[in-house]
Simulated scan of single mutants.
Amino acid sequence: MAGLAESGSNPDVDLLYDINGLAKDAPHWFDRIVEYVGEYGLLFAMVLLVLWCWWSVRRRGGEQAASSVAALVWAPLAAGVAVLVNVPIRGFVERPRPFLDHQGLEVLVSGKTDYSFVSDHATITMAMAAGLFVANRRFGIAGIALALLEGFCRIYMGVHYPTDVVGGFALGTAVALLLSPPASALLTPVLKAVERSPRAGWLIRARGRSADGQDAMVPGARREAPGTEERDLAA
């Protein structure tokens, strides 16, 4: 593997060959799995994680439901903003894909002709993970783990340098965290208006959940006194 590198003392290229070299030794079926996961699967998993967090927030309800959902809405929006910011960065740096400058790489995805720095996949997943972390720490940690796995897959696939991935992580995190306060200030009133809507309020809080997170009384229903159910069962 070291003979393939010819990279001198460049740790970025050396690490690229070390990680991508794993693809040479792995079975073909495993490389195909990594190709699909790194190109589409982890992005889809991140979207599912955000939806799962939204479902958890709306079922729990509470006074902060609207602000929590606003933070969740910001997560995919942050990813979109970060990708737009990356457009001029790529055009300014103009770094070719690693397989164009270095021989012997195992390239799992063909047809990549755009510039390499920074990685869009790493940017998107980390921006969503950082936004998710602001909304919910537990789900955010899971999102960060998915983003790190995405970065590893991009190097494994031979389509990005390690610094492309690190740059994407930094860009996604910066956009998500730095713009989170103004985004929350803009989105929270909108989501509170949605919460008050009789038709769209279910997007913020599950039906029958009150603002304090307790089950709301259905009109016309009679609340049982404590212990009534136990006495009925004893009878």
Rank of each mutant, 00 (worst) to 15 (best):
S110N: 03
R90H: 04
L100G: 00
V85S: 01
E94P: 02
R95T: 04
V81K: 02
G104W: 05
V93N: 05
S110C: 00
G91K: 03
P96F: 02
L105M: 14
V81I: 15
V85F: 13
Q103D: 15
N86D: 15
R97P: 03
G91H: 07
V83M: 08
G104C: 08
R97L: 11
E94V: 08
G111Y: 05
A82Y: 02
K112T: 05
A82Q: 04
N86R: 12
S110F: 01
R90W: 01
I89H: 03
V87M: 13
V93M: 09
H102K: 01
G111V: 07
A82C: 03
A82I: 03
E106Q: 15
L84W: 11
P96T: 04
L105I: 09
T113E: 10
N86Q: 14
E94T: 10
V107Q: 05
G91E: 06
P88D: 11
V87I: 15
V81H: 04
V83N: 08
R90E: 13
V83I: 13
V93S: 03
F99D: 08
L105S: 10
L84Y: 05
N86V: 05
P96W: 06
K112Y: 14
E106T: 13
L105R: 11
I89Q: 06
G104N: 07
T113I: 02
F99C: 01
A82L: 05
F92P: 00
R97K: 14
G111I: 04
R90Y: 01
E106C: 10
S110T: 06
F92I: 14
G91C: 00
R97N: 09
G91F: 01
V109L: 13
L100P: 00
E94H: 13
P98D: 05
I89A: 03
P98I: 08
V109T: 09
